[in-house]
């Protein structure tokens, strides 16, 4: 259930993002989701890719500061209050969310969550019959 997310340190410079996406694209790595957390002079790009280990290696070779972070990806109905219910469950379970990003279209929303206690979070969600997307669903892309 754990998904390895790439976290990449990027300066706020024009063209920096394309350099990274170029490198990953050339290596045949697919991006499934990403977000950028920004501060005034730098940002942290967080990406879910088809081959995180390879992606990390490629970027690190180019001298880019990169690390792998475990996250989970939840699938929940694209209906009013659905996310709220999930978040209430987590907070009642004493789990806090460090950051999350999500996207919804049609009937489902995919929510990437970085909780503070990841194993407890997974158990809690599974006990309550939430659907977590498996890492392989993202990684599977490379076999296609």
């Amino acid at each position: 259930m754990l998904i390895k997310q790439l976290s990449i340190f990027l300066e706020n410079k024009t063209g920096r993002l394309t350099e990274v996406t170029d490198l990953l694209g050339d290596a045949g790595i697919n991006l499934s989701a990403f977000t950028i957390a920004e501060s005034s002079d730098f940002g942290i790009m967080r990406v879910i890719v088809s081959d995180p280990d390879k992606a990390k290696q490629i970027l690190a070779q180019k001298g880019i500061a990169v690390s792998l972070t475990d996250v989970i990806c939840l699938q929940c109905p694209n209906t009013p209050g659905a996310l709220n219910k999930t978040l209430q469950l987590l907070s009642a379970g004493g789990i806090s969310v460090e950051y999350m990003y999500a996207f919804a279209v049609n009937e489902f929303a995919q929510v990437v969550i970085r909780p503070d206690k990841i194993q407890e979070c997974i158990s809690l969600l599974q006990e309550n019959h939430y659907e977590l997307i498996k890492a392989d669903d993202f990684y599977a892309f490379k076999e296609k």
């Binding site: 340190f9 501060s39 690190a60 001298g63 500061a65 690390s67």
Partner: peptide
């Protein structure tokens, strides 16, 4: 920033 100390946390 040293790559090995880069943190995912803003």
């Amino acid at each position: 920033v040293r790559p090995e100390f880069f943190s995912d946390h803003l």
